[in-house]
């Protein structure tokens, strides 16, 4: 399929979706489901609202900090688990358990432990994204091919050189994939955490929910989707730029 056809189809899909939404929205009314035209007006209002904009920006900060911590912890953890059977046996059960556990279930304990401040959001973000970063890195570390390490040894690579010139580049695509998945989870859990403590975007959502209109709620939803898509896509671009050899190996996105 050519890229023009694909783009045309995507736009058609989007237009159809908006059309159905508009019809359903007009039928149900603003209180139940605002139509896209109303949501668009609300989006413009949001964009013009300095305070709302500032709130949204401030919400993203703890998500980014949490995501950075998740990468700093998850990447080395995953790499060690992938290369050392002992560490893997020790840690893997815990990582697999946490990855399937809803962070929402841990929230009450977190609130008791660290309260409902800025760091609460960071903690929720870390706890929901770090496992994905860890497991993706782990998969990469397990898949570092023995034959590559053999080439290194054959040419007399020291352990440090082998790490830098073979392990890191071999891991790199997985680090980036892990970062991408982790970032998506970070942004999702950021909204969740802020809903619990009624601050940031969560606060805005809560406020909008009090009104009888769903237009603002849906506008906020569009904003959250936009942030998630932009982050994931942006990291994808960074990946292509940093690891050009990957482009020929992966199926087209």
């Amino acid at each position: 399929m050519s890229s023009t056809t694909r783009l045309a189809l995507r736009l058609t899909g989007l237009a159809l979706f908006l059309l159905v939404w508009e019809l359903v929205g007009r039928h149900l009314g603003d209180a139940l489901m605002a139509p896209p035209s109303a949501v668009a007006r609300e989006l413009v209002a949001l964009a013009e609202d300095d305070q709302a904009r500032a709130t949204i920006w401030q919400s993203i900060a703890p998500a980014l900090v949490g995501f950075a911590i998740a990468c700093a912890v998850g990447m080395p953890l995953g790499a060690v688990m992938g290369r050392s059977p002992i560490w893997n046996a020790l840690l893997h059960p815990w990582v697999s358990t946490f990855v399937v556990t809803s962070v929402a279930a841990i929230v009450p304990i977190l609130i008791l432990l660290i309260g409902t401040g800025w760091w609460f959001v960071v903690a929720v973000v870390v706890l929901s994204s770090v496992w994905y970063v860890t497991l993706t890195t782990y998969q990469g570390a397990v898949r570092i091919e023995r034959r590559w390490l053999d080439v290194g040894r054959s040419f007399g690579a020291s352990r440090i050189r082998a790490f830098r010139t073979i392990m890191l580049p071999a891991l790199f695509p997985y680090l980036l994939a892990g970062a991408r998945i982790g970032l998506t989870h970070a942004i999702r859990s950021m909204v969740l955490a802020q809903l619990f403590i009624v601050s940031g975007i969560g606060g805005l959502l809560n406020e909008a929910g009090m009104d009888v209109s769903t237009a603002r709620l849906l506008a906020l939803l569009v904003v959250i989707m936009g942030i998630g898509l932009a982050a994931s896509h942006g990291l994808g671009r960074v990946a292509d730029w940093l690891a050009p050899w990957q482009r020929g190996l992966e199926p087209q996105r």
Partner: peptide, 8 residues
């Protein structure tokens, strides 16, 4: 298997 590094 030639065993070249795909990133190089």
């Amino acid at each position: 298997g030639f065993d070249l590094f795909p990133w190089r």
